[in-house]
């Protein structure tokens, strides 16, 4: 195959853009491996001269008798637990509802669906101040339940699952009904297996969104022990902004898990953005 000059040029240009896109991430990893104090020189070093895990040790290991504690390890635990709980909660709430809105006939279906569509335009921030007061009055500030609360609303998740479920042929459901299967059985044994790819996509979106969420955890959590990673990182950055290498290791710990998750499940991610079909 003959490679034309134009093809080569375009490919090189795309490669250049891709390089610009990943350069800050590569730099983040590199600096996190530099010895403390060595990044802040001019010209700025790009590769670590003597790679070390010192920053990760400083950040993650407890300091017996020391004054500084960054609370990153508890934050990592909080983020992992909260993102997992958010994922489970979203699936339990949104998948059955999305299926019901697509395929089942029941009283009020059209009106409830319209209401959800209308609610899609409400910015999440509008509800946050009163929600904070509501949670405060029942003592749920600084608890996992408080951070999870906004996820009880499943507007986008329901609409996403509904859209994907519309493609499931009615004949399959009717055939199962004639065979005497209960509605719960139909959902679990007929519909869920077909929806597997979109369920994975929704789970991925929920996990990533919860992991990276910032404004709500910042409001709902006021005590360091309950910080999620983004809240903890922002707090450290306000206090220890000068320690470039340490901050970069904090950024790596915060964002690497979701980056790896995306790389592993990118197929589900991309189909999710492009409308979510149930092609496997």
């Amino acid at each position: 195959m003959v490679v034309s000059a134009g093809s080569l040029l375009r490919t090189a240009l795309v490669a250049l853009f891709a390089l610009i896109a990943v350069l800050p991430l590569l730099w983040m990893v590199n600096v996190s491996l530099m010895a403390p104090g060595t990044a802040a020189t001019f010209p700025p070093p790009f590769w670590p001269a003597h790679p070390t895990l010192a920053n990760y040790r400083e950040l993650l290991l407890p300091h017996p008798g020391g004054l500084t504690s960054y609370h990153i390890l508890p934050a990592l635990g909080n983020s992992a637990v909260l993102a997992s709980l958010t994922t489970v909660l979203s699936l339990l709430l949104c998948v059955p509802a999305g299926y019901a809105f697509a395929k089942l006939r029941f009283w009020g279906r059209a009106r409830m669906l319209q209401a959800l569509l209308a609610l899609a335009v409400v910015p999440a921030q509008v509800a946050m101040l009163p929600l904070f007061l509501m949670l405060k009055s029942v003592g749920l500030v600084n608890t996992y339940a408080g951070v999870l609360a906004p996820w009880l609303a499943g507007v986008y998740g329901v609409l996403f699952i509904r859209q994907a479920t519309l493609a499931v042929p009615d004949e399959m459901l009717d055939a199962a009904r004639i065979d005497g299967a209960s509605e719960a059985r139909i959902f679990l044994s007929v519909v869920l297996p077909l929806l597997r790819p979109v369920v994975v996509t929704l789970a991925l979106f929920a996990f990533l969104a919860s992991w990276s969420d910032f404004l709500w955890p910042l409001i709902a959590i006021t005590d360091q022990q309950h910080y999620t990673l983004p809240v903890a990182l922002a707090a450290i950055s306000r206090e220890h902004g000068g320690d470039t290498e340490l901050m970069m290791s904090g950024a790596v710990v915060t964002t690497l898990p979701v980056l790896l998750l995306f790389l592993a499940l990118q197929r589900y991610y991309f189909t999710g953005i492009l409308g979510g079909s149930i092609k496997g």
Binding site: A127, A153, G154, E183
Partner: peptide, 24 residues
Amino acid sequence: QARAGLGFVLPVMIGTVLVLVIPT
């Protein structure tokens, strides 16, 4: 079917009213 449908959508509808509609 109607019973199942309502059962499937009620949890998320109640949740949405609680944490989105009422606070708004």
